[in-house]
Nucleic acid binder design. Structure first.
Ligand SMILES: NC(=O)c1ccc[n+]([C@@H]2O[C@H](COP(=O)([O-])OP(=O)(O)OC[C@H]3O[C@@H](n4cnc5c(N)ncnc54)[C@H](O)[C@@H]3O)[C@@H](O)[C@H]2O)c1
Ligand SMILES: NC(=O)c1ccc[n+]([C@@H]2O[C@H](COP(=O)([O-])OP(=O)(O)OC[C@H]3O[C@@H](n4cnc5c(N)ncnc54)[C@H](O)[C@@H]3O)[C@@H](O)[C@H]2O)c1
Lengths: 225, 225
DNA sequence: CTCGGTTTGTTCTCGCGTTCACAAACTCCT
DNA sequence: AGGAGTTTGTGAACGCGAGAACAAACCGAG
């Protein structure tokens, strides 16, 4: 046991053992549920309450939280604000994350106007578009700038996260440029598979895939009726 | 073998054995990759090629396709258009799916303007909003109508799929109304947990969760450096 | 017709995630 | 102080999905 200590501590001084991906994906949901409870004046909550608010099984919730540490009190529950802070710290939303959005069309404008960014620690530092006609525009109080400014902006603001909202054909090029100037996390809305180096994280949001999954189940319901 | 035939055929006359959820979620990706290949003039492709285009492992691809049936030819590969049709049929995108969008703000307008809907068999039959000021507007060639018209529209067009793009506070009410008038599949963009009956499918798209997941990994990268 | 080369469809194994169930730990009341 | 009632944290069982590996099936050449 004692000799294993180095292994546990290797990754980082403070906590940071490896949390399962499935759990990481749920932590933001718990965070939101805790914020809601806190706003309603709930200072303490049980795993049962919190699980209900988050829409998950209470056993799963407790197991997820156990990866972070022991922040609850048996027989009592969790202190809402304390747990909220611990999860926020673990995810990293206690700090400020600068973000660039590339492709300020229908979707890019909606994203720029989305207030849920700022309130969770993400700050849009630039809007970029390749179309010169758009460079006149101001969206959500931010100037739309030429895509060529990417390198400078990323350097000046130490941007690590980029959002792609261009047409599918341009997405790979944009991603390559992002990677080249040091961005290591990409959120991709274009319906295409991006090829990036291993150390770069890509998450994709694909609306039409979601609809097609719904259609599949809808079809099955109709068939069995 | 022979006696098992009834079991295979029980669920439905045409195919429709139960496909794993993980596979269902990937079928739309394969569909898109096949469309791309087909447009490039590729009439036949191996599992290796298709897997590369879809960004998955070739063994996983073959396993996924095996749930649909045996549509390939050993030693040759898959006929691009034939496989594409089979997947489209299995998902249900060979038919037309009427869709309503509720909440025509920043995001709702972007969705209404999204061409990827129509091209995959989804037809926006109505845009609904509670704000009377918006009822003057025309978005993407479609009139914005009062939310109260929901029941009539769902009845007239046999709508099964609804999209929610309202603020979080309104989302549960909108979902309740949708369920009450017969909608059985909901795509929810509001950052809230929806309570619906079991037979109703809900999928949620949550941008800020995606960003938070990226932030978590970004933080870990920074910590280990 | 046979044989070598190719690619599919499937079997098997392994690891991850979910869920159950319960001991440990805490509060409150008597 | 002690016991009843609550709730957490976790060990263990289970099921599903990922990937490796291989036999079966197909093509084409000779
Ligand atoms: N609109 C939606 O609701 C929606 C939903 C899901 C997915 N998507 C996807 O999101 C992407 C954007 O959709 P949209 O409706 O906003 O499209 P859009 O055409 O309205 O906007 C695309 C923008 O990207 C810019 N652009 C093109 N090439 C570029 C480049 N190389 N560098 C920088 N900017 C470039 C264009 O000038 C334009 O402003 C598309 O891939 C689309 O498939 C959109
Ligand atoms: N804008 C984005 O990029 C983005 C991204 C992710 C998630 N979201 C979420 O999507 C939702 C919509 O975002 P938005 O930026 O479009 O907001 P928005 O305020 O621009 O639009 C909301 C629209 O919903 C309408 N509405 C309100 N209550 C309604 C009701 N009961 N019935 C029908 N319509 C109603 C409003 O009139 C308004 O037009 C929000 O929940 C937001 O958190 C938005």
């Amino acid at each position: 046991m004692e000799t294993r200590h180095a292994v546990t501590a290797r990754t980082s001084p403070e906590s940071a053992r490896d949390i399962p991906e499935a759990t990481v994906a749920r932590l933001p949901i718990y965070l939101r549920a805790l914020t809601t409870l806190s706003e309603q004046g709930t200072s303490t909550c049980s795993s049962e309450e919190l699980a209900a608010a988050a829409g998950v099984n209470s056993a799963k919730l407790r197991k997820d939280l156990s990866y972070l540490g022991s922040y609850g009190t048996r027989g009592v529950g969790y202190d809402t604000d304390y747990l909220r802070y611990q999860i926020a710290r673990e995810i990293g939303v206690t700090q400020d994350w600068p973000v660039v959005i590339v492709g300020i069309g229908n979707l890019g404008q909606a994203l720029a106007n989305y207030s849920g960014f700022r309130s969770r620690g993400f700050r849009v530092v630039a809007l970029l578009d390749a179309d010169p006609a758009r460079h006149e525009e101001v969206v959500a109080g931010i100037d739309v700038r030429p895509f060529d400014h990417l390198e400078q902006i990323v350097r000046d603001h130490a941007v690590a996260i980029g959002v792609i909202a261009t047409p599918a054909l341009a997405a790979q090029d944009v991603a390559d440029r992002m990677v080249a100037c040091g961005i290591t996390s990409i959120l991709n809305f274009a319906p295409t598979v991006l090829n990036v180096p291993d150390q770069v994280d890509v998450r994709k949001v694909d609306l039409s895939i979601e609809l097609q999954i719904l259609a599949y189940h809808e079809q099955r319901k109709a068939a069995s009726a």
